[in-house]
Design a protein around this nucleic acid. Structure first.
Lengths: 233, 233
DNA sequence: ATTACTAGAAGGCGAGTAT
DNA sequence: TATACTCGCCTTCTAGTAA
């Protein structure tokens, strides 16, 4: 998206108000108010837009009307198209690059517990291999993992078993090395630090990919619809 | 769409490059090139974005990596959502306000010619009443009508009949007074000026709406998918 | 009531340069 | 090599005011 002059926001505002559908009666004062701009500033924006043939104006007794030209509509639609491609196409996937290491085997223990295992089957659609793949992710990706934690994901509920309580966790569908289906675990209180990504899969990934400690592994995590939580700020 | 500071375009550019999915390795020089900005300018934009918590940066040996935060993604998605609502929701409809007048009856003659009549049936799905409704549109709406002429619409092909040739024309689905289905005609060489909107309908609109000359009529013209011809400029 | 000119302030920008 | 500071230019903003 090349940098656009400030008055493009004004064009978008006019577009939102339907000025591409019919001449919009609007004083420069009102427009300024809408944009957080002075009346004079709004006037200048309109003058610029008209000079660029993005709008046409018609003066009348009390004010003027604004109509967006075909070129103006195309400008707005072109911005929209690029945003659509970016938001709909790319978002919803987080990419991690991790280094394999061997954990303490606790992951495998948890996964094999019926209380969690049955939930994995239900949520991910596969019987998990009784062991997790532990990856150390780059420091820059920790922020990304934190963002995962903010998303809904697939919820694993906690339970009590044998007098011990097991906490709730979160899970996301993931793909390992573009080939293997997996689940990325987000566990609130884990023995691992925040720089670790833990994966469950229907197969022994370490064996299936012939991995050894220190190998690099690429993981794509699906976060669901990108437009969820589109409230903005 | 409230006015946004210029660095929001930079945020969008970063988003397009996938910086919301994984840390993006990018020098300020490259970013400047992408945005038509100097290296220093790009650096400033990044500093601003970081100050607003829209991105996080991590410095490394050769350059730095940029990752868009949840707040940053929300900002982009919020802009996208508003644009989507405006473009998908509103566009594709032009609104005209016209004043009824009585033509010379030529419209009715043309409409009843088999060469045109059969095309109306095929394109609009109704047998046209042998007469057109002529509206004088406001001067400000002439530009809008010109824009109609630039769109594809439903094409009526010309023909020769009885030694006379009848030219091609264009037609758009329309709704009169929110109640009656109609077709809005765009005729290249017409006896009417450009300030006239001519409508065909399956019924006698003048009678159905109890209209007399001078009455005001509101017409919504469907122009088809708004994202057609989204090339921009 | 409008729109829009002018002048001066504020902020964005690039060049040079420090780190 | 990078990033980012200062400085001067230029664009954009608001205020005052004309039309």
């Amino acid at each position: 998206m090349p940098r656009a002059p400030p008055y493009v926001w004004t064009l978008i505002e006019l577009y939102e108000r339907g000025a591409a559908r019919r001449p919009l009666e609007l004083s420069t004062e009102e427009l300024g108010l809408m944009l957080g701009l002075s009346q004079q500033g709004a006037s200048k924006h309109l003058a610029e837009l008209e000079k660029e043939d993005l709008i046409v104006r018609r003066r009348n007794a009390r004010g003027a009307s604004v109509l967006i030209t075909k070129e103006g509509s195309d400008t707005v639609i072109s911005i929209y198209s690029r945003l659509r491609a970016a938001v709909e196409g790319k978002a919803g996937v987080f990419e991690f690059h991790g280094t394999l290491f061997t954990g303490l085997g606790e992951g495998g223990y948890y996964v094999s517990l019926a209380g969690y295992r049955k939930q994995f089957v239900k949520l991910l659609g596969f019987e998990p291999f009784p062991g997790t793949l532990n990856l150390t992710i780059g420091a820059g990706e920790i922020e990304l993992k934190k963002q995962l934690g903010l998303l809904r994901g697939l919820g694993l509920t906690g339970f009590v078993h044998g007098g011990r309580s097991y906490g709730p966790a979160k899970c996301f569908r993931a793909t390992v090395e573009s080939r293997y289906e997996a689940g990325a675990l987000i566990i609130e209180r884990t023995h691992h630090g925040e720089g670790v990504l833990e994966l469950v899969a229907p197969v022994n990934l370490r064996k299936a990919l012939s991995l050894k400690d220190g190998d690099h592994v690429r993981v794509l995590v699906q976060t669901g619809d990108a437009t969820n939580g589109s409230g903005g700020h």
